[in-house]
Every structure is written in C-alpha cells, then in structure tokens.
C-alpha cells in the first residue's frame, strides 16, 4: 500500500511498505527499523516513536490529540514544530511516499 521513507540522523534512508490500517510506527517495527523504539507498543504513552515530519507532509497528517501533544513535551530529543509520534500516524493510500526523519535518540 503506502510507502514511507525513514531518514536516519546520519542521512541513511530506509523505505518501508506499509499494510492497510497500520501506523507508521507499526510499519517501522515490523521491518526491524532502528531508531523507532515504541516501548509502549503503540498506546500513546511513552514518546519513544518520535519522528520529524517532512514539511510537505505535515499538514496532511491526522490532527494531533491532546495526549500526543503532552507526550511530545517529554521526547528525548528536542520537540520541533514538525514533531509527531509515529504511532499516531495511521497510514492511508493518501500518505504514500511519506517522509519521516528520525531523531538522534528515543530515550
């Protein structure tokens, strides 16, 4: 279905195919991607699946909940205006070729 390109802090990139209805975090962990921890398993409780969203895509993502907003204040790397939790990005065909940048660390 939709593909995501994850860009690591060193510039290396990984392109992963997602399955219908899974989150960007689930796609990343299913493919064994380094850089997404997801300690809470996708329950929006830990802020260890932090990503920076490429500007072109930011406005096209589902809106941020209050819970996600509060969690982003606790990320290990700085929160930026384009910070999101990848467990809260539900993949749809409209998000095909999404680009997400990974922070230096998650804890």
């Amino acid at each position: 279905m939709a593909a995501i390109t994850f860009i690591h802090p060193n510039g290396r990139s990984d392109r992963v195919e997602t399955s219908d209805g899974e989150s960007a975090m689930q796609a990343a962990t299913r493919h064994g991607l380094d850089g997404i921890l997801a300690e809470c398993g996708g329950n929006a409780m830990c802020a260890t699946c932090h990503v920076y969203v490429d500007d072109d895509w930011l406005a096209r993502l589902p809106p941020m909940s209050d819970d996600e907003d509060a969690l982003l204040d606790g990320t290990a790397c700085d929160r930026l205006p384009n910070s999101r939790l990848s467990c809260q990005i539900r993949m749809t065909p409209a998000l095909d070729e999404l680009v997400l940048r990974l922070p230096e660390r998650q804890v």
């Binding site: 921890l37 300690e39 398993g41 329950n43 409780m45 830990c46």
Partner: peptide, 22 residues
C-alpha cells in the same frame, strides 16, 4: 525487539506507571 509484549498490559489500561518502572 520487545515492543508489543503485554507485561505492562496493552490498550487503555496499559500500566500508567510504565515510565517509572522503566
């Protein structure tokens, strides 16, 4: 890769103190 284990539960009742434990 331990993500997804249910030692802290899962879903809306997943351990609220999991970050303290970790």
């Amino acid at each position: 890769r331990t993500s997804g284990h249910v030692g802290f539960g899962s879903g809306i009742h997943m351990c609220v103190g999991q970050l303290v434990a970790r």
